[in-house]
Amino acid sequence: MYSNKFGRLILGLYSCKPSAVCGAVRSAAGRSGFSWTAVCKQRTLWLQRSACLKTQRQTLPSPISARSASQTTVDPDELRRFQSLASKWWDEQGEFAALHAMNDLRVPFIRDNLLSVHGAYHPGKPLAGLRILDVGCGGGLLTEPLGRLGANVLGIDPVEHSIGTAQLHSSYDPDLRDQVCYRACTLEELSAEEEGGEEEQGAGQFDAVVASEVVEHLADLETFAFCCSHVLKPGGSLFITTINKTNLSYVLGIVAAEQLLRIVPSGTHDWEKFISPVELERLLESYGFSVQSVQGMLYNPVSGAWSWTNSTAINYALHAVKLRNDPQPHQTEAGSSHPEEHAAASHS
């Protein structure tokens, strides 16, 4: 019943104006006894806190100062949450059902863009010869299909139980034995390792870095962007899927899904951590990336399927390439422009 209600919300409200969306959710909330006033007050507090944090970030004089505030991408609260779910990664009908379904979009998105960048094609194993780092790999839901496409994939995650689940699952498929490996570590720990070690996983070792449904859970995006640039080869690709920071993503992703219909456990997402395509592009450019494409994604909870859409108002996928002559972080030209369509798409 809840899935049908949420499906109608998404399919019926996705193209509506923000006022219409809020009005519809307000009406549904009233019928269920849900306090819309409390929701609005909560969001106002979040917006005020977000503005305060943005002001504090702007006073930091350099990227080094920004990273020194945490020096880690790991949020302890997120770590505890995913530890409790570590054994459920491969339950296709469970909490991660949407991530299983997302492979129908994100795997071809990664494959096709890598083939476009690198040009070579190996029949049956199109990604053969490429090294990919899957950041926040969880139980290996994306790591395994990339390995089956011929890539040599390293999946990393700070949750040891998730890594254990990934290793156990991949052990059942002998074709993955030489293609996929896992480590329980953070991105910054991997980035700090010296190049030339036994596994040669130091700076500039990967052809691609994938962070799918990860950045909205991180504690420090500055450190994330810096480390991604550090571990990538010049010309390497960065793939990100995440949630936009819009009124629509707040209404559907938090109010409807978590607080009203309770489809997603309360506290799964923090709207303050969402980031728009324009903001993400600006951050990546300051660390030596050039964004190649941004594409909207839409999930239908009724059919359990994802589809591409022209709007990035809720979910989106991004592909960026590390420039071969890296600029210094935060020293890109002040007049650098961003595609106007990205700015338009980021509005709800």
Rank of each mutant, 00 (worst) to 15 (best):
S162E: 12
G147Q: 03
S336K: 11
R111D: 06
P301Y: 03
A38H: 11
R26P: 00
S171C: 06
R324N: 06
G155V: 05
F34P: 01
S116A: 13
D178N: 10
L154Y: 05
G23W: 04
C16N: 07
D270G: 00
V153C: 08
D112F: 05
G147R: 03
L260F: 08
R43V: 14
A344R: 15
F6Q: 04
T59D: 09
A120N: 10
A345Q: 14
R81A: 13
S84H: 10
Y316E: 04
A151P: 05
L142V: 13
V107C: 10
V214I: 11
L114R: 03
P61C: 06
G33V: 09
R262I: 01
H122I: 14
K41L: 15
R43I: 10
E258F: 09
P76N: 02
Q205T: 15
T242K: 03
C227V: 09
R81V: 07
G140A: 08
V153M: 03
V74L: 10
N315M: 02
S162A: 15
V294K: 03
V153W: 01
L53P: 00
E188C: 03
D77L: 11
E200I: 00
W271T: 01
I243E: 02
K273W: 00
L168E: 14
S191W: 00
S293W: 06
A151W: 02
K88P: 00
Q205R: 12
S87W: 06
S19W: 07
C137E: 05
A211F: 07
R8I: 00
Q58V: 09
V21K: 04
I243F: 07
K41C: 10
F109Q: 06
T312V: 15
A101Q: 11
E193N: 03
A320F: 05
L60V: 10
W306L: 07
A320K: 05
W89E: 09
L284D: 02
A305C: 12
G202I: 07
D77W: 06
N310S: 15
S303G: 11
L260G: 05
G335R: 12
E333L: 09
R131M: 04
Q201G: 05
L238I: 06
A345R: 15
P329G: 05
H230P: 03
S303W: 09
E95Y: 14
R148T: 09
V321F: 00
Y121Q: 11
E92K: 14
A344Y: 05
Y250D: 01
W308I: 07
C40Q: 13
L187M: 12
H161W: 02
P327H: 02
L149K: 06
P277K: 01
T37C: 01
N315T: 00
A225S: 13
L280D: 08
R8K: 05
N325H: 13
D220S: 12
Y182E: 04
L13E: 13
C181F: 04
